[in-house]
Structures are given as structure tokens and as C-alpha cells.
Amino acid sequence: MSEYKSGSNLEKVLKAGHFAFTGECGPPLGANVEHLKEKAGHLKGCVDAVNVTDNQTAVVRMSSWAASLILLQEGLEPNFQMVCRDRNRLAIQSDILGVYSHGIRNMLCLSGDHQRFGNHPEAKNVFDIDSMQLIHTVKTMRDEGTFLNGQDIDVPPQIFIGAASNPFAEPFEFRVHRLAKKIAAGADFVQTQCIYNMDRFREFMKRAVDMGLHEKCYILAGVTPMKSLGMARYMAKQVPGMDVPASLIKRLQGAGKGKVAGEGIKFAVEQIEEFKETEGVAGVHLMAIEWEHRVPEISELAGMLPRPKV
């Protein structure tokens, strides 16, 4: 038996005790493979694994498994995201087998944004199982070697199981319990929602550490650099479960014309520096939304380069 659950690069980096660094790449709004390769190219060598989003915000894009395979071919390690909105338990389990067969070793289990947000609000949703049950499904397939119905799997998938946590959604007191529940269900690593309210995140991490959750699971802090004031205001007002303090908007405003993006990066780098020292934080998940070309610069400034080879 291997000492690893999946043998993914991300798992190896984390297990070796390195401060992990993951990135994100949204599949194209079409079959523009070149654009995807170009975006992914910026992340190469900067991060340990790249999250590939699954019809995020319920907008139709190239499927996450297909884009993950392209990343794999490009020499990047994907963290394949899967939402429960668009698949029932049959499709979920067969997709897990499919991606594993093609070499995908990390998977992030999500419920998924409701389709009312997206560009097909008339769609019927699935939600046969929820994110918690999806985590449990992957774990059952990997560790028990069985499908959800108890039948044996002929060569079970060895996947490093990821989950999401939003420390800023409500009810706040329940959030750390929900994280604990996800870990108990089988999460090996957790990536948090974008953090802007540092006080609230510190409090969340304190509670997580008090409960010993950081010893059972790798917690990666979510960072999304603000590109503009418009983005900051949009995040603050329009995105549910996002907590953007007024003080941050004021700071970005104070940067002056043409310097907001730089200030956004500066704030992100300060965050990463703090997370390196925060008890219980095992790494950072950098979600530079449609800003992949700035990732090398951010990685450099945050002292995240070079990435460890394990």
C-alpha cells in the first residue's frame, strides 16, 4: 500500500509539510482550447495544483473534467471540481471513475451555485446528493472500494478529497461545525471561500484549531486579489456569502486612479504572508479570476516560488 491516499502532487506537498499553493482556472465559454492553454500556462510552475471550476455561477462552460484533462496534458495537476447541481449519483460515480482513469487525482466536492444565478435559470436542477454526501461518496469509493449501493468497484479510484468551506456565510457559529462534518465525511483538504474579512477568518481558524480540525485535514485559505473598485463593490453587494469590509474598499479607493489593481495585489500578498504564520493554515488557494497572467507576479511577491518538488 502506498503511504498516500492518491499520490497527487498536492497531497505529497501537503504531507511533506510544505505550505501549499493552489491556483484556479475557469474553463472557456466554448471550445477555445488555446485560450485555456494560455491561461493555464501562466500558472505552470507557480502552483501545486489548479482548480478547474465546474460550470461556476451556473454558467455553461466547457466541462470541468474535459478542461482538467487538457491541463493534465499541459503538464499541470488539476483539482477537478464537481458540483451536485448537474449530476445524479449515477453520473457522479461514473465521472469519478472516468476522471481517475485519465489520471486526475484531486477532486473538490461542492453543492454548486443554484441555477437561478446563471445563464440557464429555466433549467431543472438535480441535487440528488449534497456536497457532504459527495465527499462521503468519494471516500466510500476510494476506501471501501464500493459504489454507494455497496457493490464492489473493479479498481477503485484513488482520489485526494477536497471540500469547500465558507467562514463568512451564515450562521457563523455553525460554519466551523460544518467544516468538522465535512472532515468527518472524508475531506482530506479544504479550500475556503475568498477571505477579505481577516478578523472573522482569524476567529474561524481559532475555533477550527481549538477543535483540532487542522490536525485532521489540510486547510487552505482562499485569496482572490481585487482587480478594481468595481469588482470589490460587486463582491461586497452582489455575491452571497462574501464578506468584504468597508475598510478594504476604502483602502482600494485610497490607492488612486490606475493603482487599485496594484493595491489589490498588495493586500493579497499581505494576506498570504499572514496565512503562512497562522496556526492551522496549511496553504493558500489563489483564485485570480480571469487574472491568471498576474499569478507569477503574485507568487513571486508572496515568496511562494519556487514550488517544492516532492
Binding site: 443554484h114 449534497d130 456536497s131 469547500a164 465525511a185
Partner: peptide, 18 residues
């Protein structure tokens, strides 16, 4: 989303993300 294991990350001010 008919979730059975707790609130999703879109719960805000007691309201649903939709």
C-alpha cells in the same frame, strides 16, 4: 438545493442565495 447536511455557502442574513 434540498441540502440535508447544513447550510451552503450562499446563506446570508438569513436569506437564500437565490
Amino acid at each position: 438545493k434540498s441540502l440535508l447536511n447544513g447550510p451552503c455557502g450562499g446563506s446570508s442574513d438569513g436569506k437564500c442565495e437565490i
